[in-house]
Amino acid sequence: MDSELCKKAKNGDARAFAMLYESVSGRLYSTAYYMLGRKEDAEDIVMDTVADAFAQIRSLRDPEAFEGWIFRIMMNKIRRKRGSYIGEPVRLNEDISASPQTDADEKAALWKAMQSLQEEDRAILILDVIDGYRSDEIGRMLNLNPNTVRSRKQRAMVKLRRLLGGENDD
């Protein structure tokens, strides 16, 4: 992470902040979308996150921690947002999820299986598999011990394998 950009952003330079944001924007949006399943909510969450992060960037001491820090702000917002979904099924907007390379049945099965995971386990899988973060980085984002991240990922994978592959216990 560019410490010069971070310094400028701390001094209120919105352009510098936007350049910092650019390096994580795709992963922020994808994570929000796959956690919430709604395009509009994902956009709102990322916008809120960006506004809060810009307002609070003075509190960020280590420029290297920017990525984990902004994700942590967003994951807290997602947690609160999902609390308001109780009782409502979460479905992926087809305009985004449709892709010519993928099979609609496979996508539906995967999404259904992902929905059956605990929220935090789903976040761990998305951050790990889709975004490519390490367990220590995910631990900082979700306020979890890296060992916990690894063991919960393993547990979530076992569950996904069972649901997707018809794997038996034996």
Binding site: G26, S30, S99, E106, L110
Partner: peptide, 8 residues
């Protein structure tokens, strides 16, 4: 997962 849930 990567096939069906790419970074957008």
């Amino acid at each position: 997962m990567r096939r069906n849930m790419p970074v957008l």
